[in-house]
Amino acid sequence: MTKSKLTIAVTGLNNIDSPGPGIPVIRGLKESKHFNCRIIGLSYDAMEPGIYMHEVVDKTYQIPLPSAGQQSLLTRLEYIHQQEKLDVIIPNFDAELYNFIKLQDTLKSMGIATFLPTLEQFEERHKSALPAFGEKYGIKVPKSRMINSMAEIHNLAYEFGYPLVVKGKFYDASIAYSPDQAMAYFNKISGKWGLPIIIQQYTPGTEVNLTGLGDGKGKLTGAVPMRKTYITDKGKAWAGVTLEDKELMKIAEKMVAGNKWRGGFELEMIRTDRNEYYLIEINPRFPAWVHLATGSGQNHPEALVRMALGEDVNPYKRYEVGKMFVRYSWDQIVDLKEFENISTFGEL
């Protein structure tokens, strides 16, 4: 079989201690049995390590921050498309998804495929809307609510008790054991990600996660559950192992059947000692550990690209249980000229 040659643009090249999913997604694409690919990195910051990983990323272009809006992004993508003739774009950050979802039809008319959730799917799984989401799809969710000022923290003890979880609207979560800690986390997280802050009931148990891919028609194309076995001080997985977890698979199937999720996603769940599952977050894109799915027999990035291009992809039925990932850090030596190019011209 002759493999087609695709040009695929990928964001999330920040392969740092709290990594974006870009590099693991690219590794899956490079291992594809169905296509060869040229990878175009889309970066926001000249210090994203993926920019300098030339064996993984063929060429990188800086793109405007999501706050610059859709038009700036589109203008930049038009330029990149002129240079590279993109076939597919895979955005990997929560914060940029809104713009990409809004632009997906325009991108399609330019000949660039995406495979993204609808705006409604994207909005209804926001942390702030999670309780309603859980009710709608029959998934248990810890009690939570949004707050917009520190003054509201005083009443949290009555409503939630301590400890409780303080979360940013896009990223970051910390467990607060007292009002003082809750205020400190409120300031820290809102300073970084803005308001509102989400307060969530603390649910004791083991965190189990699932990386999945929905076909947009109600079927789960692939899903692999994982437990973190080594966690960084930022709460990120540095190592993890695939699990046999039928209940978690059922929850993922139920969610995808209910909301017809289109694209990659991650379920973050707490499994209590009584074997009850509580949904604490849904990420609307692949997680940074998605390469574990590829390594255990389900190449989700490859399947996403094929579905983006209109192919029918048979759902994955199996994965290897007990497959581990162990992350590592690596000092790349970079010529100043390269840094100069990406900083000055926005291309490398």
């Binding site: 437990r227 192992v241 699990l243 249980v321 007990g322």
Partner: peptide
């Protein structure tokens, strides 16, 4: 039932990931 026990004495619980 699904506990994996190897001849080296390594035991893996696939439901929890504990070893």
């Amino acid at each position: 039932k699904n506990l994996a026990i190897s001849d080296t004495g390594f035991v893996f619980n696939p439901a929890t990931g504990d070893s």
